[in-house]
Design a protein around this nucleic acid. Structure first.
Length: 728
DNA sequence: TTTGCTTATCTTTTT
DNA sequence: GATAAGCAAA
């Protein structure tokens, strides 16, 4: 190794007892001084602990903290680990670099972007911005008029991001994932290329650009690589199973010259395929780094054996065999509970009842979590909890920065960094009364092409009534050019925007004002606007409910946002086909496999108690209550490994009966079919199914059976007594 | 041209 | 149950 630091000097200086706190495998990982290491760590196996101790160990042995880089899935995860390391060492670990791939890439690009033809004053577009730009471009190209069925902008965004993250070509991608769009490939390609040009012209980057451009810098500049290699001697990556090929290559390039890379992850917990990640990446690691040592952590310190028996059963059904069986370190434990409810309302009541049980028995609220597949699955439960006055914190829901007035504010701030950003201009200008899309378009075409858009706007000639306001805006932004103190900048922006916010959100102006003040208060943590904006875009704070009390709350979370966390009590709700596995995943096996891993991730979050809940009827908007089958994943767990909720103590009636599996007896027939049995359907007709979405009738097989080709799922034969099919 | 109103649509998951 | 698109009126 080239840049080794002496590792023998100051042993035992801090008296951490590694042997006592870690098992032999963890110890081996912690004490590896050089070369690549792959740590395959099962759920609850103490991988965070391993990383924390490794940071401590390296520092204790004389490795300068600033030469350690810790990449994690969220910024918070990095911060937590460094905090724990600090308390072990009894000294600050602040100098250790930590954060997310995107955040790190952003930091680097602010320095190196010119090497790939970008200015350093670029701004980051969030997802909503991307959608807006894509819509704008499709409109400009005349692809969205009535009668033309161009893929919705969401699909376009998905196509773009998958191409970027997987590194596949448009043709490959359309063939594999979007076969119904193949004949529109030409138009899609045109939009995508216009999108790329647009971003470059206006100094904008989306999330994927951060990664790809940073990779490009590394690929093309030997000096930068060597710099990185010298600067960061030890690189650690957590949740490596959720990285994509681009990120893997970035790691490879940054480890230039020393190969001191340790990646930690669990192939069975890979749940970000939609973002280009694949569990195969983690298995590829030894090919990327030769002489890589592989360490496996299989002992589970979190859960009890009855719980792990279930999770082992779930993952045993995976097509790819993850040769890992979790063995509980803790003794005892109770069996997972299954509860069938009549509908979602009853499910909410059940969960709320149980939560109150636990609370009254002394469990503190922050040790309880309710997990679900998608954000909206918890709506009914949220209502029920509110009714009972139980405070909760929802993760993976609407973020503070997604609120309209916050966005307005941030767009204004973005303009101080990048005055070429039309997305922000549009958002800001539309606030001015009397100024609409057409007017804005005229302004932007006249000013954005100029070398100095702000001055151009200051001198923009018009006789419209909004003239003064627009000029005032330009003057305000111009005056901020000389201001380097971030708090002052935010203050000016707030002064400008407050009257307008008051105007357009008259009802809850006070609340919004408080949130804006909170935002301004965040300025203390940052040196400049660009850093603050990047941080907010890449790691948005959850909506803090404006009550600044640090009250301990129970958690409602999507499973994705629950990654890496644990609770004493976990409820998994709405475990029915179409919800979990999600309807969009029913079409192919690969997606089902990912759903299964997701189910596995959810189940392994529980320390002591887990409740699997499923309603017999689910609400699908526009269709009312429709019958739903229990999730296939529940059926994959042998019945004897779970116990039904004891009907005696539950409210009444609707618990599932006896030992029978949750199959067809559950089909509850509500109000019959939507359209009766008459031959209302004809081949060629466009129809819609509440779960499968839109499709085309292929054939009426007989009175009761119909064959439909769904846009998203392909061919299905449905029974008309059960399926609620409507004409569109 | 803007704005206000009505109607349709659709809900994975996230850096 | 939010939000975008579509249409009529100011």
């Amino acid at each position: 190794m080239t840049q080794a630091h002496s590792v023998t000097s100051r042993r035992k200086a801090f008296n951490i007892d590694y042997e006592r706190d870690l098992n032999p495998q963890q110890l081996q990982a912690v004490k590896t001084t050089e070369g690549p290491v792959l740590v395959i760590a099962g759920a609850g196996s103490g991988k965070t602990r391993t990383l924390v101790y490794r940071v401590a160990w390296l520092i204790e042995n004389g490795i300068p903290p600033e030469s350690i880089l810790l990449l994690t899935f969220t910024r918070k995860a990095a911060a937590t680990m460094l905090q724990r390391a600090s308390s072990l060492l009894k000294r600050s670990c602040d100098q250790v670099s930590g954060g997310t791939f995107h955040g790190f890439a952003h930091r680097m690009l602010r320095q190196y972007a010119p090497l790939v033809g970008y200015p350093t004053n670029f701004t980051i577009m969030d997802r909503a911005d991307v959608l807006q730009v894509l819509r704008y471009i499709s409109n400009e190209m005349g692809l969205t008029g009535t009668g033309r069925r161009f893929p919705p902008k969401k699909t376009m965004a998905t196509i773009a991001t998958r191409m970027a993250n997987r590194g596949s070509s448009l043709e490959e991608l359309l063939e594999s994932d979007f076969s119904h769009l193949e004949d529109q490939g030409h138009d899609i390609a045109k939009v995508l290329s216009a999108y790329a040009t647009y971003k470059k012209e206006h100094h904008l980057m989306d999330y994927d650009d951060l990664l790809l451009l940073w990779r490009k810098v590394l690929r093309e500049n030997r000096e930068v690589r060597q710099n990185m290699g010298r600067k960061f001697n030890y690189i650690m990556v957590d949740e490596y199973q959720d990285t994509n090929p681009a990120q893997a290559e970035i790691v490879r390039l940054m480890a230039c010259g020393h190969d001191n890379v340790m990646v930690v992850g669990d192939d069975a917990q890979s749940i970000y395929a939609f973002r280009g990640a694949s569990f195969k990446n983690i298995l590829e690691f030894p090919n990327l780094f030769t002489n890589c040592s592989v360490i496996k952590l299989v002992r589970n310190y979190r859960s009890t054996q009855p719980n792990l028996d279930c999770t082992n059963a779930i993952i045993a059904h995976a097509r790819e065999k993850f040769a890992k069986k979790l063995i509980a370190h803790r003794k005892g434990g109770s069996m997972p509970v299954v509860f069938r409810s009549k509908d979602e309302g009853e499910q909410a009541i059940f969960v709320a009842d149980r939560i109150q049980d636990f609370l009254s028995k002394g469990t503190s609220p922050e040790k309880i979590a309710v997990l679900f597949r998608a954000g909206f699955h918890s709506y009914q439960l949220e209502a029920e909890l509110n009714r009972r006055g139980l405070a909760f914190e929802k993760r993976g829901g609407i973020k503070l920065v997604e609120a309209a007035h916050i966005k307005d504010f941030l767009c204004l701030l973005r303009l101080t960094v990048n005055p070429y950003d039309p997305v922000s201009w549009t958002r800001v200008l539309i606030m001015i009364e009397g100024l609409g899309p057409k007017g804005i378009n005229r302004i932007l075409t006249a000013t954005l092409g100029e070398p100095d858009p702000l001055n151009a706007l200051r001198q923009y000639k018009t006789r419209s009534r909004w003239k003064n306001q627009v000029h005032g805006l330009a003057s305000m932004l111009l005056s901020l050019r000389k201001e380097t103190r971030l708090p002052k900048i935010l203050e000016s922006i707030k002064d400008w925007i407050c009257p307008l916010v008051q105007n357009s959100y008259a009802g809850d102006y006070p609340r919004r004002l408080i949130e804006l003040q909170q935002l301004c208060a965040m300025a203390d943590n940052y040196d400049d606007a660009a850093t603050m904006l990047a941080d907010l875009a890449l790691d948005p704070p959850e909506n803090t409910d404006t009550s600044k009390k640090k009250e301990k709350k129970l958690v409602l979370s999507t499973i994705h946002s629950a990654k890496g966390l644990e609770w004493d009590v976990v409820f998994m709700i709405s475990l029915v086909e179409g919800r979990f596995p999600a309807s969009g995943a029913l079409k192919n096996d690969v997606d089902i496999e990912e759903e299964r891993r997701l189910f596995y991730v959810g189940s392994t979050r529980a320390r002591d108690h887990i409740f699997y809940c499923f309603p017999s009827l689910v609400n699908v908007s526009g269709y009312g209550s429709i019958p739903a089958d229990p999730s296939r994943f529940l059926n994959e767990i042998p019945a004897e490994l779970m116990k039904p909720w004891n009907p005696d103590t539950s409210r009444k009636g609707h618990t599932f009966g006896g030992s029978s599996r949750y199959t067809d007896d559950s089909k509850i027939q509500e109000t019959g079919t939507s359209l009766g049995s008459g031959n209302k359907f004809r081949p060629g007709q466009r129809v819609r199914h509440p779960i499968f979405g839109p499709g085309k009738v292929i054939q009426m097989i007989n009175d009761k059976k119909i064959k439909i080709c769904f846009d998203r799922m392909g061919y299905k034969t449905l029974h008309m007594d059960y399926a609620k099919i409507s004409i569109i």
